[in-house]
Design a protein around this nucleic acid. Structure first.
Lengths: 166, 166
DNA sequence: GATGGAATATTGCCATGCCTATAGTTGCTT
DNA sequence: AAGCAACTATAGGCATGGCAATATTCCATC
């Protein structure tokens, strides 16, 4: 084991990426908690709310988040219990069901978003002058397009419909 | 709930960061699994191996990873069972114990690292020309320094000793 | 119109890891 | 020296979420 491996610029680079992301995640989680949400619940709320009709099939929601389908079942269970979502049967396909954001869910997201955006501004976008930020985002976009995990959390991607026929 | 919120450039920016990171994480996890490691175990192995004597106190290991102290107890349990680490009592302070990387642990890391670095090169550093990469890393460094979560995964930071007196 | 394969959501079982409580040390203060 | 607060590692209880199995529904093919 060569000690110099740790000084490899690639190791350093990936370390920077993960440390920056982890630091931001921690701040987000703390703020979500103030509003009674977990990071996953916020992610789900964002994805649903920006989808047509504020709804998605369970499968599509899983594909667009960091969760498996069973994970979606469970987080939707919790959020339905808390009144943030409700399930709606799909009339044209009795296998499917939709998760729909309720008024309470929209209100919760409304409460949470300003602080969320403010944290992004304070610790991320606001840390860099506009040119540096553009350069950073261009680089990230290129990496994201390359590694493309489907569509995950942040929701930058064009929406792959999913609301379909119901 | 204003639909335009989702087009806020700050939301877009944070989305890019998290999607890129998530995509890389997924590739890493797949490769770690080929070598019988989880992401956390790799993180622990990296942190310990780059520390003086290939060892850290449990507390320091927790501070330098994404785990709590009880999380460290449990991951060290597993890795000790698998022969990758062993515990060593600290003679000068009977409260403390060290996690020490074994020869098998070093060998496992040796097996894993080349592929890991290759993935970084293929999907991250190699995706950008040198100037763009530098710009990206400068931006990340600035964000990391601002949000500074202590020392986490990637291990870019100078080491806060921790091997101390034993 | 049957039938078999694909799709969908859910559940059981399990691993992981956090929070809190606990027990053992240490060292400072009186 | 006795007491006490801080520190350290661990264990119990709990929440989360993945994988595999399951039941239901759809659809294409015969």
């Amino acid at each position: 084991m060569d000690q110099n491996v740790f000084d490899d610029p690639r190791i350093t680079a990936i370390g920077l990426l993960f440390e920056a992301t982890a630091g931001l995640s921690a701040r987000f989680s703390a703020q979500f908690e103030e509003h009674g949400l977990s990071a996953v619940e916020f992610e789900v709320l964002m994805r649903l709310t920006r989808s047509p009709g504020h709804q998605l099939r369970m499968t599509d929601l899983a594909a667009q988040t960091s969760l498996s389908t069973s994970g979606v079942t469970r987080v939707v269970d919790r959020m339905e219990r808390d009144g943030l979502l409700r399930r709606r049967a799909c009339p044209s396909d009795r296998r499917s069901s939709y998760a729909v954001v309720t008024a309470a869910g929209l209100a919760r997201l409304d409460q949470t978003l300003p602080g969320h955006v403010q944290i992004i501004e304070q610790w991320f976008t606001g840390q860099l002058d506009p040119a540096a930020l553009d350069a950073l985002l261009d680089g990230l976009r290129q990496v994201r397009d390359a590694v493309h995990p489907g569509a995950t959390a942040g929701s930058t991607d064009p929406l792959p419909a999913g609301a379909g026929d119901c």
